[in-house]
């Protein structure tokens, strides 16, 4: 894996296009006729109820699974491979407990030793998430938010064209979550990668996304551009009406409102 050497620092995002993607597990069709196109450097929030297929789409995007039909095209000519341009951040940090913070970030560069260049990349990624002084620590001594920041540094150290985030802040407490949202926003603004974030949290989706995409029953049912200046004011009227519109759509199919997060 030498993508890190190929792509320059801050090379920017890559386009992504999903065309008529289908995914079935036996009888169960999780994605059906799924279309989505994302411009380079765009931040797309994906919301939907549990089991709507949003996490499945991220697994297809990162090639952890293969689509039953349809294609996902990456890069300007649609020929880039997921292994070289897509990085994934999970709900759990998934850090190696026996490796220092710095060595965990180095994992993000794939195979290879501790060359000066790789160490410098890892250190600058750590600095970008505000953990420059913790590189020697074990993950066990960090807080949940700090561990997730290490995971973010690991995902970004190779300057990926596309970052997929599967409920990355879902396990954090409310205050840490807000801190992480603004960190994520500022890192995205400086590196300009394309971001796809799956979330259950509608305000979070609006706060971060250029677009919010709603997935229901395996396909996109709503695609709204969020034309609000960043950083977004959650209390503002425009924010509130967007939130109401999305929640309304989410609840329409709900049997009981208690099921909606």
């Amino acid at each position: 894996m030498s993508f890190a050497d190929v792509r320059d620092d801050g090379a920017g995002g890559l386009a992504l296009e999903a065309r008529r993607v289908e995914k079935a597990f036996g009888e169960k069709r999780v994605l059906r006729g799924f279309d989505l196109s994302v411009a380079p450097g765009e931040f797309v929030s994906i919301v939907g109820r549990s089991g709507c297929g949003k996490s499945t789409f991220l697994r297809l995007l990162t090639e952890l699974d293969v689509p039953t039909a349809g294609r996902i095209l990456l890069g300007p000519d649609g020929s880039a491979t997921a292994a070289s341009v897509v990085r994934m951040m999970y709900q759990e940090p998934r850090l190696l407990p026996w490796a220092s913070v710095l060595d965990n970030v180095l994992i993000g560069l794939g195979d290879g030793g501790r060359s000066a260049g790789r160490l410098a990349s890892a250190r600058s990624a750590l600095a970008a998430v505000g953990l420059a002084d913790r590189e020697r620590e074990w993950p066990a001594v960090l807080s949940g938010g700090q561990r997730q920041r290490v995971a973010l540094a690991r995902a970004l150290v190779s300057n990926p064209g596309i970052l997929a985030l599967d409920e990355p802040l879902g396990a954090l407490d409310a205050l840490t979550r807000i801190e992480m949202q603004s960190l994520l926003e500022s890192v995205w603004q400086s590196k300009r990668f394309t971001a796809l974030m799956v979330t259950h949290d509608v305000p979070e989706a609006i706060a971060l996304g250029d677009r919010v995409v709603l997935i229901e029953d395996g396909s996109v049912t709503l695609d709204i551009a969020v034309d609000l200046p960043r950083p977004r004011q959650r209390g503002s009227q425009a924010f509130g009406s967007l939130e109401a519109r999305l929640l309304d759509q989410l609840m329409r199919r709900a049997d009981s409102p208690a099921g909606v997060v």
């Binding site: 952890l64 990085r87 994992i107 794939g110 195979d111």
Partner: peptide, 15 residues
């Protein structure tokens, strides 16, 4: 989960 993570980062068999 750690094995899946390492694979997704292109870590080879030996590493």
């Amino acid at each position: 989960q750690l094995i899946e993570m390492a694979r997704s980062y292109g870590i080879g068999r030996l590493n």
